[in-house]
Amino acid sequence: MRARDGELGAAVARAQDGDETAFAVAYRIVQPGLLGYLRGLVGEEAEDVAADAWLEIARDLGRFRGDGAGFRGWTATIARHRALDLLRRQRIRPRSTTLEQDVLDLPGPHSTHEQALESLSTERALELVRALPRDQAEAVLLRVVVGLDGPAVARVLGKRPGAVRTAAYRGLKRLARQLGAAGTADAGVTDDGPRTLGESE
C-alpha cells in the first residue's frame, strides 16, 4: 500500500487542482485501508463513518498540504474523529468481555501463524483486533491496515512515537498469540467461516 504513495500524491495534487477523476483515483487507493481501520474501531458502522469522513475530506481537500503518505495520515485523522464522535454518541464499548478475553489469551501450542491465517475470516480477525486494548488496536490498524509509518501513527493518535511503537508491538504480539489459539479452537468448527457451519461433516 505504501508502494502506491507516489501515485496517490500525484492524484491528490491533481484533485486539488479540480480534477475529479484524480479524486476518484485517490479514493480508490485510500478507502480500503480507511475502511479496514474503521471496521476495527466501530465495526458495522464503518461504511457510514467512512462516507461521513469522505464528505469532510472532499470539502477540506483544498486545505491539505503534503504527499501521498501525508494524505493517508490526514484522511485517517478525519476518519478517526468521525469514528470517535460515533462512539461517544452510541457509547459502544470496543472491548469484548473479560471472559472471552481470557479464552482468547490461551496459547495454541501446535499451530503456526500460517495455518491460523489460512483459516482466518475477516470477521474473526476483526473480532480479535477489537478485543485488543483500544490503543493497541488502533496502533496496529493504522500501521498495518492503513499503512502509516510510526511518526504518522503517533500524530493521528496524538501520542508520542515511542508509546505508539510499543502499543503496536504489543498488539501484534498479542494478536499473533491469539491467532494461534483461534486457529486450533476453530479448526474443526468453522473452517471457512459461518457459511460452512451447517454443512460440515
Binding site: 500500500m1 484533485a15 475529479e20 479524486f23 476518484a24 479514493y27 480508490r28 478507502q31 480500503p32 485501508g33 475502511l35 479496514g36 471496521r39 476495527g40 461504511e47 467512512a50 462516507a51 469522505w54 464528505l55 475530506i57 472532499a58 470539502r59 481537500l61 501463524h113 491465517l117 482466518l120 475470516s121 475477516t122 480477525a125 476483526l126 483486533v129 496496529v140 490498524l141 500501521r143 498495518v144 491496515v145 499503512g147 501484534l172 494478536l175
Partner: peptide
C-alpha cells in the same frame, strides 16, 4: 502483518460510496 492487512483490508471499493464521495468533491 501483511497477512493481517490482507484479511482486514476490503478487496474492492463500493461503487456507490465512491460516487457519493466524488459528488461531494
Amino acid at each position: 502483518e501483511a497477512a493481517v492487512a490482507a484479511v482486514l483490508r476490503p478487496g474492492g471499493v463500493d461503487r456507490t460510496a465512491e460516487e457519493r464521495a466524488v459528488a461531494a468533491f
